[in-house]
Amino acid sequence: MPAPTAPSVRRLRSTARAILPFPEPESWLDVDTGDADFPEAARTFFPYTAFDGLDPTPRVLHAQAIERLEEGYQGRLTDPRITAHLRARYDVVSLLNPHADPGELRAALAVLRPGGHLLVESPRDPRPELESRGCTIIATARRSAHVPARLTARLPGAPDPRVTGPLAAAARALDHTLALLLAGTRFAKTYRVIARKGPSAP
């Protein structure tokens, strides 16, 4: 599993720093974590936080095996079995690549403890829905969007993090380059929102 490039690490750490004004969380779930690059970067600022990860691919299990995560769960956050298993478990939930599924924010709030913080980066403004669900918006910013590893994910055998070779290396390099190029364009702008779950939020 390759380490993120330096600009990627800086970006991930910048996202993690948004939670620094709040008490250090005991538990944090990163949704669609992939190889757990974000928890690995966030641990710089939150060394005593237990980071768990959720991802639809086996990469999350490999990330757990190499101790980037305390617990790794393979699946979707909107799967009712996963939501029920993780209900009200986390102080922070991060959604850095939210899907169009309208149930995802609801599921994220379900696994968040009352008073916990939801960190969202999305091209769509999540504030109206969060406020309608009893959340308090703590911080809002606009920034360049996070660009996932789209080429790497399409390699033959890509769900297996052990896929290596010149093609895999080239795809990873192109993904990092694409992320940097798109970060400066108007197409990559996104909202970063931190919301606190209210006591009455579902």
Results as ranks from 00 to 15, higher is better:
Ser14Tyr: 05
Thr136Leu: 11
Phe22Gly: 07
Lys189Leu: 05
Ile82Met: 15
Gln74Pro: 09
Gly103Ile: 02
Leu109Val: 09
Leu174Thr: 04
Arg162Ala: 15
His99Glu: 13
Pro56Met: 08
Ser94Met: 13
Thr190His: 03
Pro4Leu: 07
Thr78Ile: 11
Glu40Asp: 13
Pro56Tyr: 09
Glu67Arg: 10
Cys135Gly: 13
Pro128Leu: 04
Ser122Arg: 09
Ala6Thr: 14
Leu29Ile: 04
Cys135Ser: 11
Pro166Thr: 12
Leu130Asn: 12
Pro98His: 10
Asp125His: 10
Arg17Glu: 12
Arg76Cys: 07
Pro21Trp: 13
Ala107Gln: 00
Leu77Asp: 13
Tyr90Leu: 02
Val193Gly: 04
Phe38Leu: 05
Leu109Thr: 01
Leu118Ala: 01
Pro98Gly: 04
Thr177Gly: 06
Arg13Pro: 04
Glu121Phe: 12
Ser8Thr: 15
Phe45Ile: 05
Ala108Arg: 04
Arg154Gly: 04
Val193Glu: 00
Arg133Glu: 14
His146Arg: 14
Tyr48Arg: 15
Leu12Pro: 10
Gly165Arg: 03
Arg17Gly: 02
Arg154Asn: 09
Glu121Trp: 07
Leu151Asp: 02
Ala145Cys: 07
Pro56Arg: 09
Arg11Ile: 11
Leu109Trp: 08
Asp35Ser: 10
Lys197Asn: 05
Pro25Ala: 06
Glu104His: 04
Arg17Val: 01
Leu105Ala: 13
Val92His: 05
Ala65Thr: 06
Ala169Trp: 03
Gly184Met: 04
Arg192Val: 01
Ile138Ala: 14
Arg106Phe: 08
Ala195Lys: 02
Glu131Tyr: 09
Arg133Val: 06
Pro7Asn: 02
Leu130Glu: 12
Pro98Asp: 04
Arg68Glu: 00
Pro126Asn: 08
Pro7Thr: 01
His99Met: 07
Ala188Arg: 02
Glu129Asp: 06
Arg172Cys: 00
Pro159Arg: 08
Glu40Arg: 13
Ala3Cys: 05
Ser144Pro: 15
Val9Gln: 11
Pro202Cys: 03
Gly72Glu: 10
Pro156Val: 00
His62Pro: 00
Arg76Gln: 06
Phe51Lys: 00
Leu119Asn: 01
Phe45Tyr: 11
Ala100Gln: 01
Arg172Trp: 10
Phe45Gln: 05
Ile82Asn: 09
Ala18Asp: 14
His85Lys: 15
Ala145Trp: 08
Gly75Ala: 07
Ala169Leu: 09
Thr190Val: 14
Leu54Asp: 05
Ala6Asp: 06
Val111Cys: 04
Thr164Lys: 10
Leu112Ser: 00
Thr152Ser: 11
Ala63Ser: 05
Ile137Cys: 04
Thr190Leu: 03
Glu121Ile: 11
Arg186Ser: 13
Pro123Met: 06
Ala42Met: 00
Leu29Arg: 12
Leu20Phe: 08
Leu96His: 10
Pro114Ser: 06
Thr177Tyr: 13
Ala63Trp: 00
Glu24Cys: 12
Asp101Arg: 05
Pro128Ser: 09
Arg68Trp: 00
Gln64Glu: 12
Arg81Ala: 15
Val9His: 02
Ala88Gln: 15
Arg43Ser: 13
Val93Tyr: 08
Phe187Gly: 05
Ala42Glu: 06
Pro7Cys: 05
Leu182Lys: 12
Arg154Asp: 11
Asp32Ser: 11
